[in-house]
Design a protein around this nucleic acid. Structure first.
Length: 582
RNA sequence: GCUGUUGUAGCUCAGUUGGUAGAGCACUUCCUUGGUAAGGAAGAGGUUCGGCAGUUCAAUCCUGCUCAACAGCUCCA
């Protein structure tokens, strides 16, 4: 028989490979714990999992034992054979085996369906396939972790034990994958954030991050950049309060839809809420006066700090917090301005993602949610069509994310891809006919009558905090010069060169460059090592040679050794780099 | 919120089958004036081992509760 060729780049083949491995996992677990009940075990992005219901709690040591058993099954080279059963037969077989979850799965399938099974030796499982020909096709396996997972992904149902693993056609590929995971861990923004002293989160405030001086540099630079581009693009800026009367949130619909995630407080016996979003505040700001159609489009930005009560288990560094700053803006406009405004925001987002940060990204169109939404289906369709048309006119590709819209309108979500291939949803453009209605926003048209404006809610970074987390991992802490908390660190070779080093430091500082000076009584190798660990952009070394020639010897955190350079030339070049956002 | 794991000095971690705690780094002082990833020596540092109860002659170690972190699930306007 010809050897089965495994094309691991083919998604179908890869999934079949991992799926077969998950069957082997299930068999191994059943061999060791015959009482284990099987749930489901599909292939996923980087491997597979299988869910089990079993009183014994799997430990990390168990994973090793299971792996060993899996290797036995693989070595046995059992062929995977497909066969079919009728519904009744299938239910009967599974009931006999006490596989309650399988019975439930089968009972939920259409009545007339013929069910396919796969078996390997004595082990069999309900499965649509496809699979590898035999268990010995699996060459390299690793069980990675065990975790809880709800039966059928429903938090009201029982929690099962899920074993995660991965498999590859060779040990080399498996090792490469594991190495990649290790690399990603090194980039973890929580680790780098601690090492670089950017931010911290304490037990006293879970989900409420503190920003330290170096982290504040990042924040302030991002915000400064944000203000700059928004001014250029015709936005004005406001700031609205963190706490507002609860009535406002009833009007907006936030209370109905998201009160579980809101924080409340009382002031003088009245109920107030801490804002989970900025828009209702923006609505009040809009309503302060009358507008003419000539005032539109009106673009109002706000770096607004919001608070949301996230579940404790959902918190994750800066990526998922309980307070964060949205780089929000609301655009009020005439219906005929919708498409142009959407296109304008798309361009702005593209500029920031592609030009400034070098992110690849894709766009998703999120449509009306099943249940939680306000307004009529007609208006939802109208808004969704407008987003779609704007995209199509710009020749942009997008994928549809059914039912994932905000409760007040459909949206375009921008998912960026970082330097190690992970995607993050950041930017969003939401088109909204509902809030202007609820808040009775008006403008006076050319006919002298009052009309209803349409609005856009949009963010580019999404959350400043989360964006800092993402770029920390994207750059592995080696931020581009304009963002780097320490742009230049000067190291003296010996005490004698301190005056010259101070002279250079002063020059850099005057040029607006963030500089640190290390004149400690330590060897240059030692200081260098420390400066490198701090990930400063440029390290400047100052000794006898440099003091005489009025130069400094430079090293860049990514490019490496740069040799000696004239001080004034270096300063001028860096000023230009910072201006160019390099 | 749910399941599991973890919680010891500023950081990274070791440790005691229950007899009141250690290393390296960092920090301070001294020596060393050194040219591209750790020069040497000494010292200080834990309200005592996340918190609160309990068992015990004795708890950092055992038990219960609780808080937080981590992984995953659920959620993410």
């Amino acid at each position: 028989m010809a050897k089965q060729v495994i094309d691991f780049n083919n998604e179908e083949v890869r999934n079949a490979y991992r799926h077969t491995t998950s069957h082997i996992l299930a068999e191994a677990v059943k061999n060791i714990w015959p009482d284990a009940k099987l749930a489901i075990g599909p292939a996923i992005d980087n491997g597979f999992y299988y869910d089990f219901d079993l009183d014994h709690k799997f430990t990390d040591d168990d994973l090793k034992v299971i792996e060993k058993e899996m290797k036995k099954i693989i070595k046995a080279g059992k062929p995977l054979e497909k066969y079919e059963l009728s519904r009744e037969e299938a239910i009967k077989v599974m009931k006999e085996k006490g596989e309650d979850y399988k019975v439930e799965l089968i009972e939920d399938l259409p009545e007339d369906e013929i069910l396919s099974f796969y078996k390997q030796g004595d082990f069999f499982d309900l499965c649509a396939g496809p699979h590898m020909e035999k268990t010995s096709n699996i060459k390299a396996v690793k069980l990675t972790s065990v975790a809880g997972a709800y039966w059928r992904g429903d938090s009201d149902k029982k929690m099962l034990q899920r074993i995660y693993g991965t498999s590859f056609p060779s040990q080399v590929e498996l090792d490469e994958y594991l190495k990649k995971i290790e690399e990603a861990k090194k980039r973890d923004h929580r680790k780098i954030g601690k090492e670089m002293d950017l931010f911290a989160i304490y037990e006293e405030g879970p989900g409420f991050p503190f920003f330290m001086p170096k982290g504040m540099v990042l924040r302030n630079e991002l915000e400064r950049f944000w203000r700059e581009i928004h001014k250029l693009n015709g936005y004005e800026e406001i700031k609205t309060p963190l706490i507002l009367n609860e009535d406002l949130w009833h009007t907006s619909g936030h209370w109905d839809n998201y009160k579980d995630n809101m924080y409340f407080t009382k002031i003088d016996g009245e109920d107030y809420a801490i804002k989970p979003m900025n828009c209702p505040g923006s609505m009040l700001a809009y309503k302060r006066k009358m507008y003419s159609y000539r005032d539109f489009p009106m673009r109002i930005g706000e770096l607004g700090q919001v608070h949301r009560h996230e579940l404790s288990g959902a918190l994750h560094g800066l990526m998922r917090v309980r307070t964060f700053t949205q780089d929000d803006a609301h655009i009020f406009m005439l219906p005929e301005q919708i498409k142009d405004e959407i296109k304008g925001v798309i361009k702005l987002i593209d500029y920031v993602y592609s030009e400034i940060f070098g992110f690849k990204y894709h766009i998703e169109l999120s449509t009306r949610p099943e249940k939680k939404y306000i307004g009529t289906i007609e208006l939802w369709d109208k808004a969704t069509d407008a987003l779609r048309e704007a995209m199509e006119e710009e020749g942009l590709e997008y994928i549809i994310n059914e039912g994932d819209g905000a409760f007040y309108g459909p949206k375009l979500d921008f998912h960026l891809e970082d330097s190690i291939g992970r995607t993050w949803q950041c930017g969003t453009i939401q088109l909204d006919y509902m809030m202007p209605e609820r808040f009775d926003l008006t403008y006076v048209g050319s006919d002298g009558e009052k009309h209803r404006p349409v609005m856009i809610h949009r963010v580019i970074f999404g959350s400043i905090e989360r964006f800092i987390g993402i770029i920390t991992e994207h750059y592995a802490g080696k931020f581009p010069l304009w963002l780097a908390p320490v742009q230049v660190k000067l190291l003296t070779v010996a005490e004698a060169f301190e005056p010259y080093a101070e002279e250079i430091a002063a020059k850099l500082q005057q040029a607006g460059i963030r500089v640190e000076l290390d004149t400690r009584n330590e060897k240059i190798g030692y200081k260098l090592r420390e400066a490198r660990n701090e990930r400063v952009t440029y390290i400047g070394i100052i000794g006898e040679r440099e003091a005489e020639a009025k130069t400094l010897t430079l090293r860049h955190n990514v490019e490496g050794e740069l040799g000696e350079m004239n001080v004034d030339e270096f300063v001028q070049k860096r000023i230009n780099d910072i201006k160019d956002k390099k």
